[in-house]
Design a protein around this nucleic acid. Structure first.
Lengths: 237, 237
DNA sequence: CGGGCCCTTGACGTTAGTCAAAGAGCGTGG
DNA sequence: CCACGCTCTTTGACTAACGTCAAGGGCCCG
């Protein structure tokens, strides 16, 4: 179990910053506890703070004009959001809401604004976090555009088992409604796609996914969707 | 017609930088001309340069393991990419390829790395560009997750007509294969979706889109996809 | 025990991908 | 100038993927 301090210092946007600078920054930061379901900031709101997740889960989402929401990311321990608060006069591009009880570090935007102007190291740290988030968004776009729902689930599961190999069991970190939204589909589709993964050695029991072979699943995510039938046909023979 | 110099200085990531600093940076930058279809950098390649588009179109794309490509962005005059070159030892998350003859400013990563470490203003400029790209990715994700193909096309067209109102005609800036890929669909689907927009006062003639009413199209993009049938039904009566 | 929420399942309609073919525009070379 | 081949685009028929609506089961909590 990491201490709060370790988690914060290991956050992407502080990891490469000299410790004494982290101290200075944190001295002016504050904790914020958020209960499940509470809003942290709204889309379109003037960006006033940058946050680091210490504990729990936070979703970033977009509300569409017609009222539905699209989840853009779900962040956990050590990840940050609201980097845009480091620039003057900007607004949040997404809303942020805790999806579990959560503890955050809140870094005031006005502070950050000044610190970033004087301190290139800190600015680079924020840049690093922003570019990382960029990378994740790009990856998500790629998945949406070229993977089927079932493949996106497979990616999601593989992310959860990190560097495991062979068989492994992972706990689904939040409820399936949220997972579905995360992966750009409806809960019903998620449910059905889960069953499709049974052919590839994945079983879902409650909130656990039992994966027979990580390698097999990795093959599946890389498969050309249009050749799915042939894989099935082969198996049938 | 803007001069090259104006375009570069008005680029997102240089706009708010003091002119004398821009001078210093540009003094060490070079032009790069790319013919249509030529690769500018590869996905996974060590990031060596940041680029600003002066003229032409550049696509950023991801190659999937199964060989298909997903276009992440298409950039034009004044937009930048490869910001990650401002950090040490990183790789490009996307490939970049010119989709027309193009002229770029190439800023060497090693230079940038040093400049950014010493100069908080410059670092903030890069951060600003990165956050802007972030915003665009988020918007694209939202569209993919909650809009139908036809709605995404409508968004795309509305982007092209900027602040026009009433009726207007826009030129499709690149070929339909690329537009389709951009919007996350196949050329065939694009073609069919275009026809669907006829019901909303959009006609496609060659590489021009004639929009009867920008307002009407905006209503359509904001519509709940699942209520599309009711709109049609109403119209029929 | 009852109500609410999450999850699953079934039936059905819509949307988008696939495969195949044909038309349109364009440059090249005869 | 025309025929040819090329690429881009459209169309049709079919299939797969996903959303929608409705119903039902499991579970927690009052």
């Amino acid at each position: 179990m990491k201490s709060t301090d370790e988690i914060v210092r290991d956050a992407r946007f502080l990891r490469e910053l000299p410790p004494e600078q982290v101290d200075g920054l944190l001295a002016r930061a504050s904790f914020k506890d958020a209960t499940r379901g509470s809003s942290i900031h709204l889309q379109g709101e003037r960006a006033h703070s940058l946050y680091v997740v210490v504990e729990g889960w936070v979703k970033l989402y977009r509300m569409t004009p017609c009222g539905s929401e699209a989840v853009v990311a779900v962040l956990s321990r050590g990840e940050s959001f609201g980097e845009i608060a480091a620039l003057p006069g900007e607004v949040y591009a997404t809303g942020a809401e805790s999806v579990s009880d959560a503890r955050l570090i809140q870094i005031d935007g006005a502070d950050l604004l000044h610190a970033v102007a004087r301190n290139a190291d800190l600015c680079r740290a924020v840049l690093s976090a922003s570019l990382e988030s960029n990378r994740q968004l790009v990856q998500q776009l790629e998945q949406l555009k070229s993977h089927t729902g079932a493949q996106r689930i497979a990616d999601f599961l593989l992310d959860l088992c990190k560097d495991e190999t062979g068989s492994c069991t992972v706990v689904l970190p939040y409820d399936k409604v949220l997972i579905a939204s995360c992966l750009g589909m409806k809960p019903e589709s998620l449910s059905r796609s889960f069953r499709r993964l049974a052919d590839y050695g994945v079983r879902i029991v409650k909130d656990r996914a039992i994966i027979q072979s990580v390698e097999r699943l990795m093959e599946y995510t890389d498969e050309d969707p249009s050749s799915a039938w042939s894989a099935k046909t082969c198996k049938a023979n």
